[in-house]
Design a binder for these strands. Structure first.
Length: 423
RNA sequence: GGAGAGGUGGCAGAGUGGUCGAAUGCGGCGGUCUCGAAAACCGUUAGGCUCGCAAGGGCCUCAUAGGUUCGAAUCCUAUCCUCUCCGCCA
């Protein structure tokens, strides 16, 4: 959520930022509603002030044994007026809140402005995209031959896009999770969290999946005969882990708070059928290790850099050539102010695959979730900045590992870093 | 799933219709004392919204949402959550 006061005072700047994100603003409607609300609120509050002093008066009169009937009668009328004002204020507030929750975060100044992915900038690359001397097989062919996972089995027991891993494939999944988490907790100083894969609506709203992405989530009902949408399967560990701090105040000395955790992730991927869905490219359930940070605002850009580095280190250890993209304004997610994607080259599929997305949300999520810290200098409570990044998304890493580390016989020679975990 | 108890400020814990945004204690902060510290003593210490250049004023918040009332932390209803006991269960 943006700061309404900020919108009030900088409507042009906000409109410009929203434009860069490809959102038609509606800022003026919002500001009109806001002004109406404040005008009514003022009138309501004046009446309430009157009522409060009259209440004291009534109490005093009664104590002294005097009658207070006339004041009580007067206040009865006032109470009705107050109720009228408040219901109007309530209506306006609801409208305002709805708009506020649907306004995306503004891109930071150094984010390229663009309509879609064409504005993304490659900021650096690591390693040489591998070229095999032989005809490289794609990951699905390799895996089928080696029996590492099956899309068909998943289709039978669940539906399309739910891979089932077997034998060495299943072990690879476990190995990757352990390897990544170990790296983040031992080397990068994160605390491990094992969180629920189902969250409530408030959590989804907190990180910003709701309202915009609600259609892409698996919704659950609270109970028999109840409507779906009280609970959701998480699309990413970002949701439960960031919401751990919802409505809390963090001590400044405890910042930054750094969590990492593994969870399964569930995405409907509505509307993306047929395209880039072969094998593990795009599935409805996958495993992911996520990193989440709560930081002081003045450090947040540096924290984003180090977050990206933490994710890159995983790829380097896995010896997977990759590139780092600074996303343009049109390709960033709803809540992000700045975002780097890590993409790995898959030599058989001949494509770059996004295996990590590292975002800075500034105070956008913190404001939605009311996550604050006490600024030692100003003595004031201020919103923290939140960040998260995949470290990394497994299904696609498996895809890239298979295609990169295959030999001419279709065997896989996994990178050294994974060996202890695969033994 | 059944029965009961309960949700009040950073924490503990009073408060059952009217100067209660809330006693008291602890903690925090500032000070006195001290070479310094501890102890003791004194003072101070919630958040949000809103009006105002400011000083300062107003409103709201005692789990949440409604209701009763001139007036609700206090009464009523629903929901959520926590704890205890019983049942079931990986």
């Amino acid at each position: 959520m943006l700061d309404l006061k900020f919108i009030r005072e900088n409507p042009e700047q906000v409109a410009q930022g929203l434009d860069a994100k490809g959102v038609s603003a509606g800022i003026q409607t919002l500001l009109d509603l806001d002004l109406d609300k404040r005008t009514l609120l003022k009138q309501s509050e004046e009446l309430k002030a009157k009522r409060n002093s009259a209440s004291d008066e009534i109490a005093r009169l009664k104590k002294q044994g005097h009658p207070a009937d006339s004041i009580i009668l007067e206040m009865k009328a006032a109470a009705q007026k107050i109720a009228d004002f408040d219901s109007k204020v309530g209506e306006l507030s609801e409208k305002i809140d709805k708009i506020m929750l649907s306004i995306p975060n503004l891109p930071m100044k150094d984010v390229p402005v663009c309509k879609g992915a064409e504005g993304n900038k490659v900021v650096r690359t690591w390693g040489e995209p591998r070229k095999h001397e032989f005809k490289a097989k794609d990951h699905l062919d390799l895996a089928s031959k080696l029996g590492l996972f099956s899309m068909e089995k998943g289709s039978k027991i669940t539906g399309a896009g739910f891979p089932v891993y077997f034998g060495a494939g299943a072990k690879l999944e476990r190995a990757l999770i352990n390897f990544m988490i170990d790296l983040h907790i031992k080397k990068h100083g994160y605390t491990e969290v094992w969180a629920p894969a189902i969250v409530n609506r408030a959590s989804m709203r907190g990180t910003g999946q709701i309202p915009k992405m609600e259609e892409d989530m698996y919704a659950l009902a609270a109970g028999e005969g109840e409507e779906k949408g009280s609970y959701f399967l998480i699309p990413t560990a970002e949701v439960p882990i960031t919401n751990l701090m919802r409505d809390e105040t963090i001590e400044e000395k405890d910042l930054p708070v750094k969590y990492t955790g593994y969870t399964p992730c569930f995405r409907k991927e509505a509307g993306s059928y047929g395209k880039d869905t072969r094998g593990l490219s795009r599935v409805h359930q996958f495993d992911k290790v996520e990193m989440v940070k709560f930081v002081k605002p003045e450090n947040s850009e540096k924290e984003l850099e180090s977050l990206v580095n933490d994710a890159e280190e995983v790829l380097q250890a896995l010896e997977l050539p990759y590139r780092v993209l600074l996303l343009g304004s049109g390709d960033m997610s709803f809540a992000a102010a700045k975002c780097f994607d890590l993409e790995v080259w898959a030599p058989a599929t001949q494509k770059w695959f996004e295996v990590s997305s590292c975002s800075l949300f500034t105070d956008f999520q913190a404001r939605r979730m009311n996550i604050r810290y006490r600024n030692a200098q100003t003595k004031k409570l201020e919103f923290v900045h939140t960040l998260n990044g995949s470290g990394l998304a497994l299904a696609r890493i498996v895809l890239c590992l298979l295609e990169n580390f295959q030999d001419a016989n279709g065997q896989i020679l996994f990178p050294k870093a994974l060996q202890p975990y695969l033994a």
